[in-house]
Simulated assay, not measured.
Amino acid sequence: MKEFRANDGQVGGPFTDARLLLLTTTGARSGRPHTTVLGYYPDGERVLVVGSAGGGPKHPDWYHNLIADPAVTVETGLFTYPATAVVLRDAERDEVFARLVEADSGWGDYQTRTTRTIPVVALVPQPGPPTGDRGSFADALKLIHTAFRRELTLIRKEVATSGTAGLGAQLRVNCLTVCQGLQYHHTGESGGLFPAVVEQHPELSDEIAVLQSEHDQIAIHLAELEKLVTGPEPDLLPEVDRIVALLNGRLDREEAALLPFL
Score class of each variant (00 low, 15 high):
P119F: 06
Q111V: 08
H185T: 07
D69Q: 10
A160M: 01
P202K: 03
C175M: 11
L193F: 06
G191W: 10
V120I: 07
L182K: 09
G77R: 00
L123M: 00
L100C: 06
G132W: 11
G181V: 02
R113Y: 01
R113L: 13
I67R: 15
I67E: 10
E199I: 00
Q183T: 09
H186R: 11
E158F: 07
F194N: 03
Y81T: 02
Q170V: 13
G191Y: 00
C175G: 13
E95V: 05
S136T: 10
Q180I: 05
I208Q: 07
A85E: 01
F79D: 11
A165W: 02
I144Y: 14
G181P: 03
T153N: 15
V210P: 03
E151F: 03
V87W: 14
L182Y: 15
L78H: 15
V173A: 07
P195K: 05
D69R: 04
T177D: 11
G166C: 08
W107V: 01
G108S: 08
E92D: 10
F148K: 06
R172C: 06
Q170I: 10
E75S: 15
V210T: 05
P125Y: 03
G191S: 01
L123Q: 00
P195W: 05
Q183I: 09
V210C: 02
V124D: 08
V124H: 04
F137H: 15
H185R: 14
L211S: 03
T187E: 01
C179F: 12
R89K: 15
D139L: 11
Y81P: 02
L171Q: 12
G192Y: 09
Y184W: 11
Y81H: 07
R150W: 14
L154N: 09
Y184F: 13
A83S: 13
A68D: 08
G135I: 07
V72G: 11
I67H: 09
T80V: 03
F79P: 07
T164Y: 10
T76P: 06
I118C: 05
I144L: 15
T117C: 03
I118E: 12
A71Y: 13
L193E: 02
L204Y: 09
D133G: 13
Q170S: 02
S162C: 00
L167D: 14
D69F: 07
A138C: 05
F97M: 08
